[in-house]
Amino acid sequence: MLDTAYNVETPEGIDLRAQAAGPVPRILAYAVDVFYRSLILAALGIALAFADRAGVGIWLLCSFLLEWFYPVFFEVVRGGQTPGKKAFGLMVVNDNLTPISWSASLLRNLLRFADFLPFGYAAGTIAMTLNRDFRRLGDLAAGTLVVYRQQNSSERSLPQAAPLAPPRGLLMQDQLAIISLAERHRDLSEARQRELAELLQPVTGKSGRDGLHYLHAVGNWLLGGK
């Protein structure tokens, strides 16, 4: 089964799972960061225009600092998210899914130089595309990766059905599927939902509208309704 999930098992036997983020959203996030940086530099340039040659010096210093330490600062201080990454819901983490450390962030950002070669981050893009967890060279060296930050699932509206206890012998995946059916009752068309419920006719013993209603009721029950 192909998936982009990244799994880590802790020594305590707990499975941690994250979704590795691929090249397209990362390139766009980088573009957003470049946009912000250019805005800052442009504003600085206008402000420092009065200071003549000293202004040029300060501006160059600032552009150097922005280029190399803007990502480091945001990645470490703001939970692995530069503004661009935040816009796309991405975050940088260590490859054991712990928050990124100063040294790892510095390393992966200084190695952007290697990723840039020979032009326009070509090496980084190719490395990202070929690597199973979408890591560029800096990520490989620093032991980091970029994952999607899990969104807090907003409250979904549940179907109107008095909760009923599920039939016996449901595995965890089965229960999740039933819950998903209940949660998506607005997104899936009524006909399709009935078709799905019809599949379980041998298990539930109900068909048609009743079958769907019963599955919704079970979904409510599994989500803690009473």
Partner: peptide
């Protein structure tokens, strides 16, 4: 997958198959 609930369908088919086998 989102529009047609493929994930749900696959899981339901597996469940049906399993219950048929046990019965």
């Amino acid at each position: 997958i989102e529009l047609e609930g493929w994930d749900i369908e696959i899981q339901f088919r597996q469940l049906r198959e399993r219950s048929r086998r046990t019965r």
